[in-house]
């Protein structure tokens, strides 16, 4: 099995750059000091050539900057390039141009948990990501147990993945990311397939993880404005461009203003 290796540009670990588009939301976010950057992308462009069309441009000159230890959300209409940007940050896609820095180690959680969960039983799936580092079995057990506890699935260690609900599978996927003790979590529309209870359960699990560890940063792609209440900052995209970047409350009111303007336009 020869799978392509990952390729992405890395900045030096403590390289700091000035904020882009808007200033950083606060000097402190939820009591944590903001003194370093966890994710940064500069002038990213991404395009591909489809069979029937010519070049399709997905991202146009996107630049973002997310401070370390914060929970940020990425919003925008369908097809605006959110998931593509996230995959570039994860190293799953190579940008056409631009530079990317993501603090490591990082984890990517897919929108559909059936794509993320690769092992038949819960505990072995959570441990799968640890296979790249050679750890003692006791250490692995401890990490798996802690990760499952963090997402509220301590009693599900030996359960078959197939018997879990969508929300539980999603939490297993997050536990897999947490077990790796990663510094950056890249989360792609985790709540899409979930009911309201599971949506809150999953987002609280991520928030809880960030609150207990100062080093973990999360970037969460979503369509739901109500989830912004859990975020420290947000990025709004449209048509492959970053339109706004900054405080979650400001982004929320910006989107709500746009929605009301659109509704007024229809009604008039």
């Amino acid at each position: 099995m020869n799978l392509p290796s990952l390729t992405f540009t890395r900045y030096p670990p403590h390289h700091l750059v000035s904020p882009l588009y808007s200033k950083l939301p606060k000097a402190t976010a939820r009591g944590k000091s903001v003194d370093s950057v966890a994710i940064e992308a500069r002038n990213l462009n991404f395009s591909f050539t489809a069979k029937q069309t010519k070049d399709v441009t997905v991202l146009r000159d996107c630049s973002i900057r997310i401070p370390s230890g914060q929970f940020w959300m990425l919003l925008g209409p369908n097809g605006c390039g959110k998931s593509t940007l996230l995959k570039i940050l994860a190293g799953l896609l190579i940008p056409t141009s631009g530079t990317v820095y993501v603090n490591g180690p990082k984890s990517f959680v897919f929108q559909n948990p059936d794509h993320q969960v690769v092992m038949p039983t819960v505990d072995s799936d959570v441990a799968f990501g640890l296979g790249k580092v050679n750890l003692a079995d006791d250490e692995v057990r401890s990490r798996v147990s802690q990760a499952l506890h963090a997402v509220g699935l301590s009693d599900y260690m030996k359960r078959s993945v197939q018997t879990l609900s969508g929300g539980q599978k999603q939490r297993v996927a997050i536990a897999g990311a947490l077990a790796e003790a990663c510094k950056v979590l890249l989360l792609d529309e985790l709540t899409t397939f979930l009911d309201e209870t599971d949506q809150v359960g999953v987002i609280k699990a991520v928030r809880n993880c960030l609150d207990t560890s100062e080093e973990v940063t999360a970037l969460w792609v979503t369509h739901r404005l109500e989830e912004l209440e859990y975020a420290d900052g947000a990025i709004y995209m449209e048509d492959g461009k970053v339109v706004m970047h900054g405080d979650a409350t400001r982004i929320r009111s910006f989107i709500e203003d746009r929605q009301s303007a659109y509704i007024n336009q229809i009604n008039s």
Partner: peptide, 24 residues
Amino acid sequence: EQISQAMIARGFKGNVDNHKIYFL
């Protein structure tokens, strides 16, 4: 295809001998 992408994202580089499977 998606699962293979997820495996890459989770640190699997294609060589089974370099990726330990934990039987817990």
